[in-house]
Measured scan of single mutants.
Amino acid sequence: MFKRLMMVALLVIAPLSAATAADQTNPYKLMDEAAQKTFDRLKNEQPQIRANPDYLRTIVDQELLPYVQVKYAGALVLGQYYKSATPAQREAYFAAFREYLKQAYGQALAMYHGQTYQIAPEQPLGDKTIVPIRVTIIDPNGRPPVRLDFQWRKNSQTGNWQAYDMIAEGVSMITTKQNEWGTLLRTKGIDGLTAQLKSISQQKITLEEKK
Rank of each mutant, 00 (worst) to 15 (best):
Q196C: 15
Y67C: 06
R153M: 01
R98Q: 13
N44S: 12
V131D: 04
A14Y: 08
K188G: 10
Y28G: 09
A75V: 02
D191P: 05
M31F: 03
P27V: 10
Y100L: 09
P124T: 11
H113C: 06
S199G: 13
L16S: 03
I130T: 04
R147G: 01
Y82Q: 01
L148F: 08
K204E: 12
A35K: 00
R57G: 12
H113L: 03
Y72S: 00
A96G: 13
K128Q: 07
T206D: 14
S84W: 06
P132H: 12
Q178E: 12
E33T: 07
V70A: 14
W161Q: 01
Q107R: 05
G114M: 06
T176F: 03
I13V: 06
L16V: 13
D165S: 04
I174M: 15
L197N: 13
M1Y: 00
T158P: 01
V8F: 13
T176Y: 02
L30V: 06
Y28K: 07
E180K: 02
T58E: 14
D191S: 06
V12A: 05
M166P: 01
A108W: 02
D165T: 02
Y67W: 04
I174Q: 07
D149I: 05
M173A: 00
S199D: 10
T176M: 02
A96K: 03
P47T: 13
P144F: 12
A18Y: 10
T25Q: 12
Y82G: 01
T136P: 03
L109V: 14
V131H: 09
Y72K: 00
L30K: 12
L42F: 15
N160G: 09
W152G: 01
R134W: 00
Y100M: 15
P27G: 05
L42I: 15
Y105R: 00
L207V: 12
R153S: 01
P15V: 04
Q107E: 13
F150W: 13
K204Y: 06
M31V: 01
E209C: 09
N26E: 09
K37V: 11
G106D: 02
Q69T: 14
L197I: 15
V68I: 11
T158I: 05
K128L: 07
R147W: 02
K211I: 06
I49P: 02
R153E: 02
L197T: 15
T187D: 03
Q89Y: 05
A34D: 03
G74T: 00
P132K: 05
Q46P: 05
K210G: 13
R134K: 02
R90W: 03
I200M: 12
T175R: 05
A95H: 14
N26D: 11
Y100V: 15
A51M: 14
Q162P: 00
P124Q: 13
V135D: 02
S201Q: 15
P140V: 13
R98P: 08
Y105F: 03
T176A: 03
T129Q: 08
I119W: 09
I167L: 07
A110Q: 13
K29D: 15
A95E: 11
K154S: 08
Y100N: 13
G189Q: 12
A110G: 10
K210E: 12
E45L: 04
R153I: 00
L16D: 04
L11T: 02
K71E: 02
A22R: 06
V68D: 03
Q48W: 12
A120W: 15
A96S: 11
T158K: 07
T136C: 08
A108G: 14
I137H: 01
Q89A: 12
Y164P: 03
S201T: 15
E209L: 12
I205T: 14
W161N: 00
L193V: 13
D23N: 12
Q24R: 11
G142N: 07
D139Q: 15
G189L: 02
I133F: 06
Y55S: 11
K37A: 09
A120Q: 11
P140W: 12
W161I: 02
P66L: 03
I59K: 00
T20R: 11
I174H: 06
K188A: 08
N179K: 03
E63M: 02
Q162K: 09
L109C: 15
A85S: 10
E33V: 13
R50E: 07
K177F: 13
T136G: 13
A120T: 14
T129F: 13
L184Q: 07
S199W: 13
N141T: 12
K211T: 11
V171W: 03
W181N: 15
K211V: 07
S84H: 11
Y117K: 10
N160P: 01
L5S: 02
L185E: 11
Q202D: 14
G114H: 11
S156E: 02
L109D: 02
Q118N: 11
I13E: 00
F39P: 00
P87F: 11
D54M: 13
T38I: 09
L64Q: 01
G142Q: 07
D149H: 08
D149T: 03
E209P: 09
R143H: 08
E33P: 06
A85H: 04
V70F: 05
Q36N: 13
A34T: 13
Y112I: 05
R134S: 03
M1H: 00
N141R: 09
A163V: 10
I49V: 14
L148G: 03
Q115C: 00
P144Y: 12
P124G: 09
L78K: 00
P145N: 09
K177T: 11
N160T: 08
N52M: 05
R147F: 03
M173L: 14
M1F: 00
Q151K: 06
S156N: 02
V70S: 15
L10E: 01
R98E: 10
K154Y: 02
L5C: 03
W181P: 00
L11E: 00
E63Y: 01
A34W: 13
A168Y: 06
E209M: 10
Q103Y: 04
Y72G: 00
I133M: 09
S84P: 12
V8Q: 01
Y28V: 14
K71Q: 05
L76C: 05
G106F: 03
R57P: 12
P124D: 06
Q178K: 04
W152V: 12
W181V: 12
Q80T: 15
A35M: 15
F2R: 01
A51E: 13
Q69F: 01
N44V: 13
L185F: 05
A35L: 11
A96C: 09
Q89P: 04
P53L: 04
L30H: 07
G126E: 11
A14F: 14
W152K: 00
M166L: 09
Y82C: 03
W152A: 05
I119A: 08
Y164V: 05
N160W: 04
P124W: 09
W152L: 04
Q103M: 15
I200K: 04
E180D: 04
Q123A: 14
D165C: 02
A35D: 04
F150G: 08
Q162M: 08
R143Q: 04
E122T: 11
L197P: 02
Q89V: 07
Y105L: 03
P87W: 05
E169C: 04
E208D: 10
A96F: 09
Y81S: 07
P145A: 08
S201I: 09
E63P: 00
L125T: 13
L184V: 08
V77W: 12
R4M: 15
K177M: 10
L193T: 10
K188H: 08
T158D: 03
Q118A: 12
A22Q: 15
L125G: 07
D139I: 15
N52L: 03
N155V: 01
V171Q: 00
Q178I: 02
P145G: 07
I133K: 01
I174A: 14
L184I: 09
L76R: 02
L125K: 15
L148R: 01
E180I: 06
A14N: 09
R50C: 06
